[in-house]
Each structure stands twice: as C-alpha cells, then as structure tokens.
Design a protein around this nucleic acid. Structure first.
Lengths: 348, 348
DNA sequence: ACGATATTCTGAAACACTTCAGTTCTTCGG
DNA sequence: CCGAAGAACTGAAGTGTTTCAGAATATCGT
C-alpha cells in the first residue's frame, strides 16, 4: 500500500505539504503551481489512494450515511432508494443499507452498528411501520441529522418527508366523483399506519364538501400486518366479502396500490370487469401499477424526489453540524399527483 | 467520546488488557474471570464503544461488503437484495449499496469509491447488463473476493451465482407442452443479455427432444435496451404485432415476467382472454407475478437464496484471504422452479 | 532449590492521516 | 534599513486501536 509518505519521498516534499495539496486545503493557496504539479504527478505515478480509515480517524468524518428501511420488499421502497442513492452519489456520500424487517431487535442492532460506524446522517424509510414508536425515540439520542420518509413525528429533532395524504385522499375521491361515481366502496388503511387516518380525512372532507354521503357498509379496513405485501391478500378478501354480500358499488377506492390490485383480482374473479363495471383507484403508484392489466389509476407519491429531499435535508444537517450552526428539523410535505390510467372510467 | 484509555483508567488495568478482554483475543485465556468482569463492568458503565476507524486502521479490516447493482429499478433485484442483506447481517457485515444505472462512468467511479473504503468483498448484481464487458475486467485487479449474480464469467478470479437458464427454458416449454399447446409464440431475450441464449437453447433442445417444431414466424426478439422495465413495452409491442399479423398461437412463452406482462396486456387489449384463449408463461417470478391478474405462471429464480449464496461465497473468500489460504472462484448454478399459477391452462 | 513453563499484565510502537505551530526566506512600505 | 507581513514549507503531535515483546510473579517437576 502506498502511503502519503511515499508520495512525499517521491515528490521531494514533506507529507504535510502533500496532504495540503492533495486535499486542496486552505493553506494550499500559498503553494505555487509547480509544487502542486510535482506532487500530483508523484501521487499519480505511485497510484496513491488515501487511506480512508486514517483519514476518518483523524478528521472524524466517515462520508457515509445510514439508510434504514423497515421492509425492503415493499415495492414502495425501490424508487425511494433510487432517489436516495442518486442524490447521495452527487454529494459524494455512500449509503449503508439496512433492512429492519419490522423487527425491534433488528432495529436496535442495526442502529448500533450504524452509529458505531459513525454515519454522519441517517435516513429512515418508515413506510410500513409496525414498531413501537418508542423505539424510534432511540434515534433522538444520536445527535446526527435524521430524516424519516413516510412517517411524520412532530418532533423537533428529526426531520421528515411525507406526502400530503389528505390532499391525496381528496384527489382520489374527486377523480371518482368527477367520473360520476356515487356508490363507492372504500378500503381504508390499517389503524397502525400513520398514513391511514389523514388519507381518510381527506376523503371524508371532500365527501362532505361535495355533499356526498358515505355508506358505512361499503367502508372496510385493512387488518394490521407486518407484511406490506399482505395488503394485496387483504384487499382481495375484503372485496370478495363485499361482493358476496351483494353490496352494490360502481367504484372502489383502495388504501394503496397493493390493496387495489387485490380488489381487481377479486372483482375479476367474480366476473366484474374493471373498469367497465367497476372503477378502481389506488394510492402510491408503485412500479407495478403502470404495467398492471388494466393499468392502475392511482395517486402518485413522488418517491424518487422524496428520497432526494431526505438526502438534501440530511446533507444540509451534516453541513450545519460541521459549521457548528444548529439547525432545526424540517418537515416537508410533498404534493401527490393523480395519475389517470385504465382502471377508472366514466359511469355510463 | 469515551476511549479505551478511559476504560483502562476506570477499571485500573492497562488499555492493552482492556483491548484483549473486550475482543476476547487469544491471550485473554490467561486473564482471570475477576479481571474480565471488572473491565466489562467499567466498559458498560462508561458506555464504551470502540472507534471503528481506529480499529480498522490498525487491523486493516472494514467489516463492510460492497454491493453493486446494475439497475435497482429492476424488480428482479429486490429479493436478491433481501437475501444479501439478511445473510450479511448474520455474518456481521454491513453492505454499501451502489447503483450503477448501467453507466460506465458510474461503474468506475463507484468501484473506486468502494475500494477506497476498503470493502472486504464485492457482490455484483449484473442482471440487466449492457456495459462493455471489458469494464468488468477492472474488477479482477482488486484482489478481493467478488461474486457476480446473474452473469457468468468463466473467469477464475470472480465467482458467480446464476440460475440454470437452460433447465429453466426447458421447464417453461415442457409445461406448455404438457398442457397440450403446440402453436406457441416465443419472445426471446435481447442478444446482449447473457441469459438470452441458454434460455433459448433449453427451449430448442426440449422442442427437438419432444418432436415439436418451432414456427419461425412466431419467434420474436426483444430489442436491446438499457432499461429493464422496457421489456414490458417491448413485449406488448411485439405481441400486438403478432396479433395484427393474425398469426395463430395458443400459448406464449416470454423471456421474462416483464415481457409476459406486456404480452398479457396486448392480448387483453385485443380481446384475447388469458388464459382461456391463450396461455402465457414468464420467467423470474418477480413480486408482481403473484399479484397480477391473472397471476402469472412462471419459472422462478430463487432470488433470495441466490443473494444468500453470493454472500456465502464472498464471506468464505474473505476468510480465506485472512488465513492466507487462496481459494479459487466458485461457479454456482442454481435450479429454477416452475410456479404454476393462473395464466396457463389446458388446451381444450 | 532451580530452571522451565504458565499466568497476569503492560509500555510502546505502529497504523496513515491532518493540522497546529513554527521556521526560513522574500518583499515592501515608510 | 528596519519591522511587518506574506509566501513556501515542515516537524511533530494527535486520532483510538491492536499487538509485539517483555516484565514480574507464581507453579511445578525433579
């Protein structure tokens, strides 16, 4: 391994100077171009690569950000991860990826591992979160900038990036309403998820506002489950039940895309064509939605940019820490977007 | 920050002894239980956490493995990542995740970053790979254990884990054949992918073996594209073309699940019911397959266990390096599995 | 009683870097 | 011509570990 001392020897300068030049430190302003050239050439020639361990030990920086996912298999994560990765890349950080599997013990263990490695910031994708919220309190102690995606803690110490669920719910219902649907079935999110209630609130508000009344017998709830894919099954079961009870409805508004797929499956099995006989709308716009048959009308969460925002917040936080400014938590609420595809249609 | 010296002071022993005890080093065999207890208690009391930078600097180990994905958005990746993450967790390594976006420049930059951080091993998910293979040669120089998933280089220096594509292709055709299908359309993979040709070979072999003859007019090729999701579009287009030409076929065997979804979409649009009028089979068994309508019959790649295998190989390699044994590359070919769902049906 | 071996513990070096605190030599305004 | 400021460079300390090479004491077989 070639060290900075080797470069010093080769170039004929001290390792101090080499360090200053190669890092473009403030002092390098006094170093003439000739010297710089000579040092750079020596480094080049020897193929010098600074030892990050030594560098980190000395400078107390890791240039690493922790990314904690509560469940990788949730398709919701993929694009968020892409956004995170891409933005970190631009800022010259590298992510350490951890997947908590929605288990408390894993959460604690991983948190410890990440802090041990002195991550400079942490991004938590807490979409499908069924852990004791108290666990999250562990995070606060850590004194590094933290951004949560998909779960807002009205906390001062942790930032958050969430979609505006209320507006999203509104958009969804508005769409169905504008297509003429009045008999609408609803699959609500499980109580345990923070998304569930604001999304429903948006729906209820719009209903009230437009004088629509919601039929309680058409309102179903997804059961709690640690597994994000389970909402497909549940959506399917609930819809089957609805059909078996011969409830009549011309549209169905699902909590998320997964449950919407479940609903479509159930309708299909019962011989009810989507969208001809029943419109279905989801929420999230996961990758599958665009390729489903029929393609799914849904309310998109701008996942890639949410990931990017989270990184932005964390990187700002890191810089603040470096400059000893203290900065308070940001709470970003991004606008959802209605994506109209083939699963919804005018009531004829 | 509390250091080992603080623990030494607190416990009344030297930092050498503390280090030996806390690491359970060989020499600790001579240290009496009382001493150990006292040191552990002191460490506990002070909340001592060893500084990983210093530790790594000294021991030249990072306990980190690089994971390089060629395109995160490929749904094929998700479960592999889960398998990797889970196995690394058990072995006490942490992954650094990088996404190459199928770009040469990113590949090189990330490789450099990872090596700078002294990753101890590297796992490459090279599923949808459209890079100059020569780039991969860069990997060989690195002298750390490397495992590629989804792309076999008959190389001695890099290990690989791939599915047995030939058997997979065979399984798929066999299934359709056993259902009575004889007029079968095929969507082959793009020439640029290493999976394409063995998969097709399996199909051709089985066809020959069972005296089936393949109609060249029913054989289509996916175009090259950097984007793994494009095979949905392409599958759709190709199938539409087939339908427009009024080719008659009772089943379609797609290169992968994405193109199968595209085919289903096209068939559906043309009013051809799947599976009633046409069976469709895919390859991979991505998460979407199980929740599609109809659910997709496909040839599963055991992705989670492929990820786990890759980690196993790399960790073995790391241990080999540590013990100065040298170990040669492993090339693992795992068996695919036919998953029968609703998109295929007996020819009536 | 004595050399050999085992037990218990430690000082100091090494890991590769950054940076503080200078040193030496110019330059330059007055 | 002198003191101050600027330019160019460097020695050495410090970052927190691990581990080599012993030191000091105890145990034991003969």
């Amino acid at each position: 391994m070639v060290t900075i001392r080797d470069v010093a020897k080769e170039s004929g300068f001290s390792s101090t100077t080499v360090s200053i030049v190669l890092n473009n430190a403030p002092l390098s302003r006094y170093i003439p171009a000739v010297t710089k050239k000579r040092i750079e050439r020596a480094a080049q020639k020897l193929g010098y690569r600074p030892n990050q361990f030594a560098r980190s030990l000395r400078s107390k920086r890791s240039h690493t950000v922790g990314v904690m996912v509560f469940d990788m298999t949730d398709p919701f994560c993929t694009l968020i991860l892409r956004g995170i990765e891409n933005t970190l890349y631009q800022s010259n950080y590298l992510p350490m990826l951890t997947d908590v599997h929605n288990e408390g013990s894993r959460f604690e263990r991983y948190l410890e591992m990440l802090l041990d490695r002195r991550i400079e910031g942490l991004i938590v994708i807490a979409n499908w979160l069924f852990l004791d919220i108290n666990l999250l309190a562990d995070l606060e102690k850590s004194s590094i900038p933290i951004a949560m995606i998909g779960c807002e803690l009205k906390n001062d110490t942790m930032s958050s990036v969430i979609v505006d669920n209320e507006v999203g719910g509104q958009l969804a219902l508005e769409h169905l309403y504008s297509l003429g649907h009045r008999k609408i079935a609803f699959i609500r999110g499980p109580k345990g998820l923070t998304d569930s209630s604001p999304r429903w609130r948006g729906i209820r508000n719009l209903a009230k506002q437009s004088g629509m009344e919601l039929d309680a017998r058409l309102i179903l709830d997804l059961p709690e489950s640690r597994d994000p894919l389970s909402s497909f099954e549940s959506g399917c079961k609930l819809t089957e039940e609805l059909i078996r009870q011969k409830r009549s409805f011309t549209a169905l508004l699902a909590f998320d895309d997964m449950s919407a797929f479940g609903a479509i499956r159930a309708l299909n099995k019962a011989g009810i064509a989507v969208p001809e006989q029943c419109s279905v709308i989801g929420f999230d716009d996961v990758a599958t939605s665009a390729i489903y048959t029929p393609s799914l009308t849904t309310v998109r969460q701008p996942m890639e940019s949410m990931g990017a925002s989270a990184v932005g917040i964390v990187v700002d936080g890191i810089n603040a820490v470096l400059e000893k400014r203290d900065i308070l938590a940001t709470h970003k609420k991004v606008a959802p977007e209605l994506v109209i595809r083939d699963s919804t249609r005018n009531l004829t």
